[in-house]
Design a protein around this nucleic acid. Sequence first.
DNA 1: TAGCTCGTTGGACAA
DNA 2: TTTGTCCAACGAGCT
Length: 476
Amino acid sequence: MSTAILWFRQDLRLADNPALAEAVSQHQHVIPLYIHSNTDAGEWALSGASLWWLHHSLTALKHSLQSTGSDLLLDQGKVQQVLEEIVSKYKVNAIYWNRQYEPWAINRDKQLKEHFTQKGLEVKSFNAALINEPWTITTKTETPYRVFTPYWKNCLAAGIDRPLLDQPEKLPALPKGLTGASIETLKLLDPINWHAGFNDVWIPGEEGAHAALTEFLDGTVNDYDTGRDVPGTTGTSRLSAHLHFGEISPRQVIAAVRREQTSEADANRYISEIGWREFAHHLLFHYPHTIDQPLNSKFEHFPWRQDFDLDLARWQQGQTGIPLVDAGMRELWHTGWMHNRVRMVVASFLIKNLQVHWLEGARWFWDTLVDADLASNTMGWQWCAGSGADAAPYFRIFNPVTQGERFDGAGDYVRKWVPELAKMPKKFLHKPSEAPAEVLQEAGVVLDENYPSPMVDLKQSRQAALDAYKEIKELS
DNA sequence: TAGCTCGTTGGACAA
DNA sequence: TTTGTCCAACGAGCT
């Protein structure tokens, strides 16, 4: 009789789970285990909104495992120690897991693999999270890609459709006497119930992931190419957190999109977004220092603001006086998520108009996003700052008023998240400070009383950013 | 090797 | 109101 530990991490699903499928096929006993160990990751430990998601996702996984005759064993503490205890107590022969790609996780897993292999266990890891793992795609000269388009062309040429693994119908019961901690003892939920609104928006877990995918395929995907840019509508798949926690795999998502009668443009555009997720992992793996250092070293000398605390707080709270920025920051706070276009706009505003270091923004997103992902977050912020791979040219500074008028022309998004402006007419919704007194009065807006004036002059701060970028250019 | 082409997401301004 | 051009030049990646 052989026993394997199936160590769950960012692969909280039963279907298309290679480590699980292998464990079930090779061993009579399988111990599904999740270890809450939040010290390995240092500054990038799971936090805030992610912990809320994790709590519910683990609860869902536990239920599904129970319905197959098994259970999910929950534990916390040092990973090696926890594994060691279970290994010796239950005569475990093998440990299987699906790979993670964060620099800290790679180091930890490598060390664990060595340790337990030396002890005579079979230790195997699998790819569950990506179409192509970061080291499998290279340029003709075998260097990593730094530009998305050639990277993605290469992936497409190699083929991106992958076979799926079925969910095991039945799992062996846990060894007798093995009962884990309850989910509550992990204390993942913040006792301050700031995440109350999340329940209305998200269903974490594998079932929730497939429900979100179905909803996307039933409607949204058919206008994805243009609809994805409109924050006031459900124009995107909203799968990011499900994908991050591995409740669904990119293979499953691509296969499902392929089955739909969707226009080529919409399907390809969406699948290329999965490609960006892959590209982010490629970059993080090959350039791990980019989690807090610029990829482009010129930016080490960028004159970021030093005394930014008050401005950062206004940005975080959605009190900048720029309606689209405030709407985005409030959507983030209330739902743990923000529309992608708005993420770019609020990031550009923080970095360029306020000249606050992109890491401050990255850290706030890390705490508040349910889909916080080190690869995507790092790539996104560096892209906006201009210091990353395939970055926005420095002169490309979003004007949040223009962006609002272009992508939230009807104003649904701003009206929803900045209700104090709900009665503003379209013409001035994105720039209330320019509205005539009678328009403001009619809309019940009293500037600096119930809605702030813009905290910076957009034109002046844009010019200041351009000058700062010029400064580092001249250094080289 | 050298040369060529191209680069997610924009804004300001002029015509 | 819409469309075209410029912004500045660099380096990635291919041939």
